[in-house]
Design a binder for these strands. Sequence first.
DNA 1: GCACCAATCTGAACGACGTCAAGATTATCT
DNA 2: AGATAATCTTGACGTCGTTCAGATTGGTGC
Lengths: 207, 207
Amino acid sequence: MSTATAESRPYHHGDLSRALVDAARKILENEGPAALSLRAVAREAGVSPAAPYHHFKDKAELLEAVAHEGWHELDVALSTARASTQDSRVRMTNLGVAYVCFARDNPALYRVMYDRSRDKDALPDQLKDDGAYCQVRNTINENAGGHVTEIDLELATIAAWCAGHGLAEMIGFKQFAPLKELLGGEEAFLRAVFEHLGMFAKFADQD
Amino acid sequence: MSTATAESRPYHHGDLSRALVDAARKILENEGPAALSLRAVAREAGVSPAAPYHHFKDKAELLEAVAHEGWHELDVALSTARASTQDSRVRMTNLGVAYVCFARDNPALYRVMYDRSRDKDALPDQLKDDGAYCQVRNTINENAGGHVTEIDLELATIAAWCAGHGLAEMIGFKQFAPLKELLGGEEAFLRAVFEHLGMFAKFADQD
DNA sequence: GCACCAATCTGAACGACGTCAAGATTATCT
DNA sequence: AGATAATCTTGACGTCGTTCAGATTGGTGC
């Protein structure tokens, strides 16, 4: 049953915090966010329901650790996407597509990441320092040739981030299925949406 | 009908489904989404914990009813915003601002609305038929002067909707506080973000 | 090598939750 | 009126997050 790294389970686990986070992610992937209870995580790790409290003060703190891993993996995904092209115009779209694809491929993890952020009313600080948020800002900056106000750069990054997040949360919605079909697949749909982002913005007219 | 808040509470409530939805919304406003349990709703309505099950099959079905009210009120808010200006360019931004302001002023309700949508992987059908989604699409269509492909119109609407939703979920995030301050308030910040949406899209260059 | 302390884990318990079944109460229809 | 269906209560079941007292162990100073 318990597929945890189990031999003869000594009284002291060795690295329980690590095992708990792994167990949580396993449950998230296999059974979705609704099944993610602290007791289920402890069960999966082969440990009593009270054991996690020696490593995390809360259920929330465990989820925080899971979310932290998620953000880091998002960083990696965006870095890879950023290096995928030389064309600075396509690169931005690729970034967006990579972001949404990450959410699509890890829906439960993505949900935990943002549920925690909403509860704290803040994104993780890691993002602004050298994380995924920076990837986006730098790419926009390159894309604009460098001559952009600090404020405009920040605003454009926020706009891009919000659009990406919105699309990430809704990419699986049934209403979009026919349009995806019509455009020849999900990725084509994604690119098309991103390319229509300017259509209703003032910016498109001013440029 | 006589007021919902009972006097000598007869055995039959009269209109319990209505009272339950009202109680749920009251709890949402006063104590937030975390405090919204079915038992608490029943308590607030002055009724036993099992009573709701004669009107809703589930807790989820009660939340569905709450969310439905929320979507309708969002419709109203967007309609009002749409009629606020003649300038078709500003009108689009006003729509976006109204959307985000609704989320900011009813954070718990907005969260329930989208939590339910994510669980169903679909937006309410009401939206596409004559609801808020239509408001956005029509406004974009007017804004484009009418000569736009059906597909382009749909894509632009999706893009706008996703951007609005993303911003709505993050508008309260602490990281944005300094920028809000710098731009002279939250609404100015909102307008600025919306106006920067095109900055990273291909569309801005092609136009 | 040994005693001791702090860290780690268990077991049992508490209150709150969603949900259900059986019975009480009331409205409605003939 | 009486019968049938709708509504509400009571009590219960299993699960959850969390806490606490006690068992077990690793690591430190001697």
